[in-house]
Computed example of a mutant assay.
Amino acid sequence: MTKSLMRANNLTAVYAADSGQDVPAVDNVTLELPEGQILGLAGESGCGKTTLGTALAMIANPPLYVVAGTLEIDGNEINLSTLPKNANQVHRPYRGETVSLLPQGAMNAISPTLRIRDLVVDVMRAHNGSVTKADALDRASDRLKMLEMPTRVLDSYAHQLSGGMKQRMVTVISTLLNPALLIADEPTSALDVSSQKALIEMLLAMVEAKIMRGVIFITHDLPVLSMVTDRLAIMYAGKVVETGRTEDLVNNARHPYTAALLSSVLDPTEDTRTKHVLGIPGSPPNLGNPPSGCRFHPRCKFAMDVCSTTEPKMLSEGDHDFACWWAKEHPRETIPMEVTHA
């Protein structure tokens, strides 16, 4: 059995609102990543993917608060609940080396007042004061070559780089400390196709070489996830509704939301030109006042009476987990989503 690199247990994170009512953006999520694998995290905008990544990276700051949950990672068990005043100091020893975040706003994450080489050295020395400048720059140069970027980039300021080069540079900085777990939030969104390919190949190579021992890959791009991930987790309205091996979810979705997501994007396959993309009716709920029962039931074509009154528990079929009343009533049956051909 594959050893677990990371397991988040019953994680809840909320945003403090002006009204005084906390809005739960991540609601009682349990998630596991086996060592040496890449886990894809997918869902519509606003479903809680980025908030979950931020909480797992232990960098939650007001108005975001982690109010419950533990993280088991690399032999450590960490209470993620925000602690008054000293939370950042409590979690600091784990950030960067145990877990690192490649942020969604990567193009704005580089200091405009430092050359890239100075930032690289500062990052590495902040965690290990004995690192020499030469060693830090050598490691950065190796990462740049993996991303097919010239090493002269190290002599630049942020404003001298294009958006795509900034994105790739932040990828380099996020992996400098060889973190056990990298959380990559929309890492390919600002890149052209060739740069996307180089970045994905770098992440795969680093996991294969055990430079990193696992990646959580957050993106809307389901075709990319289906090609590069070992496992998928699908989020809806702050909850994880289905997890399992990527092949199982793509070919045998057990939650209607997963099937609807897969039917709403084009795959680069032979039938792309004849496939009609099916939109998901309605819109995601207000997390300040979510629907009772299954949160997807107002938009679900398979909803039953129980779906609107009782929240489904997570069920398992082998290594495939899902929370759905319809799936419970139809064991091992693929969701029959309609696909229209021209």
Score class of each variant (00 low, 15 high):
232 L>C: 06
222 L>E: 03
249 L>E: 08
251 N>K: 13
204 L>N: 09
242 E>C: 09
249 L>G: 04
202 M>E: 07
243 T>M: 09
236 Y>L: 12
224 V>T: 14
193 V>E: 00
241 V>A: 08
195 S>A: 13
208 E>S: 14
196 Q>H: 06
211 I>N: 05
239 K>C: 13
233 A>S: 06
251 N>R: 14
249 L>Q: 04
200 I>S: 01
229 T>M: 08
224 V>C: 01
248 D>G: 12
252 N>I: 14
247 E>I: 15
222 L>D: 01
203 L>P: 06
228 V>Y: 01
226 S>L: 04
246 T>K: 04
218 I>A: 07
195 S>E: 00
214 G>Q: 05
228 V>C: 06
222 L>V: 11
193 V>R: 02
198 A>V: 04
229 T>A: 14
204 L>F: 00
230 D>A: 02
206 M>Q: 14
201 E>K: 15
195 S>V: 08
224 V>M: 10
194 S>E: 08
206 M>V: 12
197 K>T: 12
226 S>K: 07
202 M>I: 08
250 V>C: 07
227 M>C: 02
219 T>Y: 02
199 L>N: 08
227 M>R: 14
243 T>G: 02
205 A>C: 00
195 S>C: 03
199 L>I: 14
216 I>F: 07
218 I>K: 03
241 V>N: 04
245 R>G: 12
205 A>W: 01
249 L>K: 06
232 L>F: 07
245 R>H: 14
226 S>G: 12
233 A>D: 00
214 G>F: 04
232 L>Q: 06
191 L>Y: 05
207 V>P: 02
214 G>V: 10
212 M>L: 14
249 L>C: 11
226 S>F: 03
238 G>V: 08
213 R>T: 05
200 I>Y: 00
195 S>G: 00
206 M>H: 12
229 T>K: 09
233 A>P: 00
256 P>K: 13
189 S>Q: 12
215 V>A: 04
191 L>Q: 03
230 D>I: 03
207 V>R: 13
249 L>F: 13
212 M>F: 05
221 D>V: 11
220 H>M: 10
196 Q>P: 02
205 A>P: 00
215 V>D: 07
198 A>E: 02
213 R>G: 01
208 E>P: 01
210 K>Q: 15
200 I>L: 14
190 A>G: 02
236 Y>K: 10
254 R>C: 04
198 A>K: 09
242 E>M: 08
238 G>Y: 09
230 D>E: 01
244 G>T: 13
201 E>S: 13
201 E>L: 12
189 S>D: 10
239 K>S: 13
212 M>V: 14
196 Q>G: 10
202 M>N: 05
247 E>S: 15
205 A>E: 11
242 E>G: 08
205 A>F: 02
239 K>N: 13
225 L>W: 01
241 V>W: 08
212 M>C: 13
236 Y>D: 11
214 G>Y: 04
252 N>R: 15
190 A>W: 09
212 M>G: 07
219 T>F: 01
254 R>V: 06
236 Y>P: 07
239 K>V: 12
216 I>V: 15
255 H>I: 12
221 D>Y: 03
212 M>P: 01
241 V>I: 15
215 V>M: 06
229 T>Y: 08
193 V>K: 01
226 S>H: 03
214 G>P: 05
207 V>Q: 11
197 K>E: 05
243 T>A: 05
233 A>E: 01
206 M>R: 12
253 A>H: 07
194 S>K: 11
210 K>N: 14
250 V>W: 06
199 L>S: 03
247 E>L: 15
234 I>T: 11
